[in-house]
């Protein structure tokens, strides 16, 4: 199955980049690819699990909220190793609208707290062109 991996020649060695339609059915495959990649770049099992869940939540957020007014949009998932800073960086980018979490009686809105709990550092950058969630995990020394 082609998960949406870009032409290997365009993706630098050791990095991961998928561009897929933002639909729920695509996310399980991306999650599994991320787990393999995180293990390969040397993250511990615990950090790999955290990275996979946090990245999934960021992608799920895009699928559920970013393109509500449109039929379909794209999602970019990138994984990079920043050897200088000794960390792994995952970014999830959409090209839709950022929607602040809405109160819903404790039912929803667990995705962002989960991301914050699973990463050492994370940032959300909403712009008029879309939203990028950036998450970091330290590489083992």
């Amino acid at each position: 199955m082609n998960l949406g991996q870009l032409d290997p020649d365009d993706v630098p060695e050791g990095e991961l980049h998928f561009r897929v339609p933002a639909v729920a059915a695509r996310l399980a495959g991306l999650r599994h690819a991320l787990a393999v990649w995180a293990g390969r770049v040397g993250l511990s099992d615990a950090d790999t699990e955290a990275l996979v869940l946090a990245s999934y939540e960021a992608m799920a957020n895009t699928v559920e909220h970013a393109y509500r007014d449109q039929t379909q949009g794209l999602l970019d998932l990138r994984g990079e190793v920043d050897t200088e800073q000794g960390r792994v960086v995952v970014t999830v980018t959409d090209y839709g609208k950022w929607r602040p979490p809405q109160p819903s009686g404790g039912l929803r809105g667990r995705g962002l707290p989960l991301i914050q709990g699973l990463t050492s550092t994370s940032t959300i950058t909403p712009t008029t062109a879309g939203t990028t969630v950036t998450m970091f995990w330290p590489l083992p020394k």
């Binding site: 039912l107 929803r108 667990r110 989960l114």
Partner: peptide
């Protein structure tokens, strides 16, 4: 072996 927040929302809903 994997539980995302969408699953937690379902569990909370059923609990309520």
């Amino acid at each position: 072996d994997f539980l995302a927040s969408a699953g937690m929302a379902v569990l909370i809903g059923c609990h309520q």
